[in-house]
Design a protein around this nucleic acid. Structure first.
Lengths: 336, 336
DNA sequence: TCCTAAAATGTAAACGTTTAGATTTTATTC
DNA sequence: GAATAAAATCTAAACGTTTACATTTTAGGA
């Protein structure tokens, strides 16, 4: 098996120096048309493909951004990712994606590996908002954009959704439909989204003079199983809530499954609103009212922020987008 | 801002040569404990992280595998991906993921970029099974594993599901429940999975002496919208089918939505089986009977095959796993 | 203490690019 | 046709590792 052709081989075949080949490869101009054609032909003939590692060594850039998500199986992230990828492609960047399974140790590994590989920037939904393990990026001068979860004590641009507002509106809607015994199934409260959603819930109750009831505040972990379990626990209460708010898509799934298994009649005996629009929302009967957010846009904006930071060398101020979620009213929270 | 520390800087600080530092970094042994400690301390002090590009240049390997999928928004792929990643991590490999949106042009770009970056292997669900655009990988000596869709005229290991069998069993089940007017909504027939599923459908009808009816064979494209449209078209037929088989998860979603909108009563007026188990399957009423396949395992096996090929230098024979799908009988195809 | 083998460490050359700066070629003007 | 400016091309030095091979140090025995 002959060895892979390098720029050297191309230069030899085209009878020019490697410098000229490099100029052609990078479209820098200043090369006679005839020479260029000769080089292009040689490239084609040899099947030459430039070696990114060597290039990176000289240029100290990879045109790559690393994306870190906590759970690739949560459909939220592939959609955000699609938004990131689309914008990245437009700007000539490639993306590399890794999932941490919400493990900080894993996240540290990935970050280290990304640095080794010389990513030009990082977009992250961190597994742990205390930023110590991300400082290393800052030290290396690699720009960071936080998506969906902010990062404490770190100068990172951020793209969030107004979680509190979304939940506030959802719970207010439930109240306006006559509910007073409203439960919430929370995510891990050390994450901002989970915490903010709980806060919105409490504020809504408060603003409408309803006492928060600790029994109705269930601690979940953003996984389907905890939605299921939470719903069952609520069902077993002496005084069941008449409405449930679920803090994310996966848990909503668990909630609905539990209701079916318990024969707890959705929209009839119990109302429901979930955070994030999901496939099943319009399929179950009654259709689910949800707090919906622009997931694709979230990704697009994240890349845009990162791109600015990667291109502009001057210090930009820290920027923060907070997108408004939208309450999509369907049929799962009728007056009971 | 001081420049990033390199192996040189570490060597200087630890008062050794770069060769010794390299040996420590790579855990090759043959270094006195005391020296090693000194080096480790220096590494820590400087925050040194090794430069993968330089390493790749020498070693000509990146410990990276590239994964190419046609549609990252289809939940099938993130799950396969999770399987790949898990096994890859175990073996010290990293994965980079890109999505083609079923575009061959995009796929070519990605492949080229992967080669530039020196991936050690590629796992792909190709957008076009005619392999011309993948030959370049073979030329470069980069091993390829095909997942879910095989690649024609290319020596690539393959991990498939027995699509024909899965569909055959599903349709046979429908027949055994008394159905004769059974429709199928196909995927793009130039892909093997779509084609095989159609084949299984036809064979099942044939084996049970039922004439295939062209009106009941709908051409879809694996997207939700085509499931929706196909179902509506079937509904508008003078002689409606009594059962529908949907060739993938996304189209199943569309089918169920259409049925609801048309008020075409699932399990009552029309039976249904879909390929691939999905979130909604156990949520709609009646619960969906589905053909289920081990998605995570698919990914695990794919990486395993790739890993063998990356490690073993000798020529291995072409290998092919064909996993059996399983018919999960629930309630959506009662006798009508 | 000296000798020797083994262990530890060092030297220097490559890997394939990019890019200043030097050199050659071409085009323009008189 | 010579002088000059501009354009095209070339030379050579980096970039940060790994590693074969050379050299030095250490330890153990006589």
């Amino acid at each position: 098996m002959e060895t892979k052709p390098n720029i050297q081989a191309v230069a030899r075949l085209a009878n020019v120096s490697i410098a000229t080949v490099s100029r052609v490869i990078n479209g820098q101009g200043g090369v006679r048309k005839k020479t260029e054609d000769r080089i292009l032909k040689a490239i084609d003939e040899l099947g030459y493909i430039r070696n990114a590692a060597a290039r990176t060594m000289k240029k100290k850039e990879t045109k790559t951004v690393g994306v870190i998500v906590p759970d690739i199986k949560n459909p939220f992230f592939p959609i955000v990712m699609a938004g990131i990828e689309q914008k990245a492609r437009e700007k000539g960047y490639f993306t590399i994606l890794s999932s941490t399974n919400e493990s900080q140790a894993m996240e540290e590994n990935i970050v280290k590996n990304f640095i080794e590989r010389g990513v030009d920037g990082v977009i992250i939904t961190t597994a742990n908002e205390n930023s110590d393990h991300l400082k290393v990026l800052q030290v290396q001068g690699i720009p960071i954009v936080a998506v969906d979860r902010s990062i404490k004590q770190l100068e990172a641009d951020t793209v969030l959704v107004d979680n509190e507002k979304g939940t506030y509106e959802a719970v207010s809607h439930l109240i306006s439909e006559g509910h007073e015994k409203i439960a919430i199934i929370c995510g891990p409260l050390e994450t901002t989204p989970a915490y903010r959603r709980l806060k919105g819930y409490k504020r809504a109750l408060n603003d409408h003079n309803i006492m928060a009831d600790e029994r109705y505040i269930i601690k979940g972990n953003f996984q389907e199983s905890s939605g299921y379990k939470g719903t069952r626990d609520l069902f077993l209460l002496d005084e069941r809530p008449t409405a449930i708010f679920s803090s994310n898509n996966l848990m909503s799934l668990g909630c609905i499954k539990a209701m079916q298994d318990l024969n707890w009649k959705l929209g009839n005996e119990v109302s429901f609103i979930g955070f994030d629009d999901i496939d099943i929302a319009t399929l179950v009967n009654p259709k689910l009212t949800v707090v919906s957010r622009p997931m694709n846009l979230l990704g697009e904006l994240a890349f845009q922020l990162l791109h600015e930071r990667m291109s502009v060398k001057d210090d930009l101020p820290k920027r923060e987008y907070i997108l408004s979620p939208e309450l999509k009213i369907r049929d799962s929270c009728r007056l009971i």
